[in-house]
């Protein structure tokens, strides 16, 4: 029983390398979907497994077992194994909940501030200009969608590059990339290995927006120079944008520029990484579900509902 619950805790460690390779092989928009769904499944299974371990540990305490109306002791592997595991799981879950709550609070506050700022300023179309000496640009989700750009950023780009930047930010808003980033953020707080996967998801969102903008404007080189210039201008200047609002210069910019300038690749048959990642997530969910069902069954037996 405990063994099957350990699987969802171990499998996420395979996710970061598989996620990176998935992004290399698939079209960025497809990769973004596959990565986000897999990472969410891995995170969910991980939390379910931790929860089952905590519950098992709690029901080992006589007072709580009485409260849970257990008439027989819960059948588990050796207490020396289960109790430390339950204690560790409790610690990890508490820590995760704490960091998640703190991050959610900070993000919500940053988003509200940015939104209020954008709503107060006059907007031309979907553009909201902030008079600031720090070059910055980001897509602000919400109703209506906005592109927030500082005057310093506008002044450091040429007219065509400004259009490229706007096309990139519009692509973020139209594809709803903030949902993917929020999901990645959530998963990152569930398992340490998924933090690395979060970075890959951010890169996938940027690459997807780059590709959409390149298709819209019909000029890959223009998008490449625009994001390179925006990144150089925005370097080392503090940004006030919320983390789930995608900026033009998020992720490894040189890698994005290289991908745009490289000749478009034929979709290759070798999609093993993506397949493995999905299998990994499926396996994790199955193991997590099996573990939880098993714990539930054992509890019912201990409650004397159906005889062993």
């Amino acid at each position: 029983m405990t063994a099957v619950l350990l699987l969802p805790l171990i499998l996420p460690f395979l996710a970061p390398p598989l996620a990176r390779r998935t992004l290399d092989r698939l079209a960025p928009a497809t990769a973004l979907w596959v990565l986000t769904a897999s990472v969410l499944a891995l995170a969910g299974a991980c939390v379910a497994a931790l929860g089952a371990l905590v519950l098992t540990g709690l029901l080992k305490v006589p007072a709580l077992a009485a409260l849970g109306e257990l008439v027989h002791p819960l059948r588990t592997p050796s207490d020396h194994l289960v109790l430390p595991a339950a204690a560790a799981a409790t610690g990890v879950l508490t820590l995760s909940t704490w960091t998640l709550a703190r991050s959610a609070l900070r993000q919500t506050r940053a988003f509200r501030t940015a939104r209020a700022q954008a709503d107060h300023r006059p907007a031309a179309g979907d553009l909201c200009v902030v008079d600031s000496p720090h070059p910055d640009a980001y897509a602000l989700p919400g109703r209506p969608h906005r592109i927030v750009v500082t005057t310093a950023m506008l002044r450091s780009l040429g007219p065509a590059e400004r259009e490229a930047l706007f096309a990139h930010e519009r692509a973020h808003n139209q594809a709803g990339h903030h949902y993917f980033l929020a999901a990645a953020e959530l998963a990152a707080h569930c398992h340490p290995a998924l933090r690395t996967a979060r970075a890959t998801i951010r890169l996938a969102a940027e690459r997807a927006a780059d590709e959409t903008a390149a298709t819209t404007l019909g000029d890959r080189r223009l998008i490449a120079t625009a994001i390179a210039r925006a990144a150089l201008a925005g370097q080392a200047s503090p940004s006030t944008r919320p983390d789930i609002a995608p900026a033009a210069t998020t992720g490894p910019v040189p890698q994005r520029v290289a991908a745009l300038l490289a000749p478009p690749r034929r979709p290759r048959a070798a999609r093993r990484a993506a397949f493995l990642l999905v299998v990994c997530a499926g396996l994790s969910v199955t193991a997590g579900t099996a573990g939880v069902v098993d714990v539930h069954y054992e509890v019912e037996i201990a409650q004397g509902e159906n005889g062993p």
Binding site: A124, G125, V129, P159, R162, E163, F166
Partner: peptide, 29 residues
């Protein structure tokens, strides 16, 4: 909306008042 954004961006980038002709030249589109 996109055209409005482009014109607005040109005005902000210039930093000085622009006539319609100057905006057209600045946009270069």
């Amino acid at each position: 909306g996109e055209l409005e954004a482009a014109v607005m961006a040109a005005l902000w980038a210039a930093g000085v008042p622009l006539t319609a002709g100057q905006v057209q030249t600045e946009l270069g589109s």
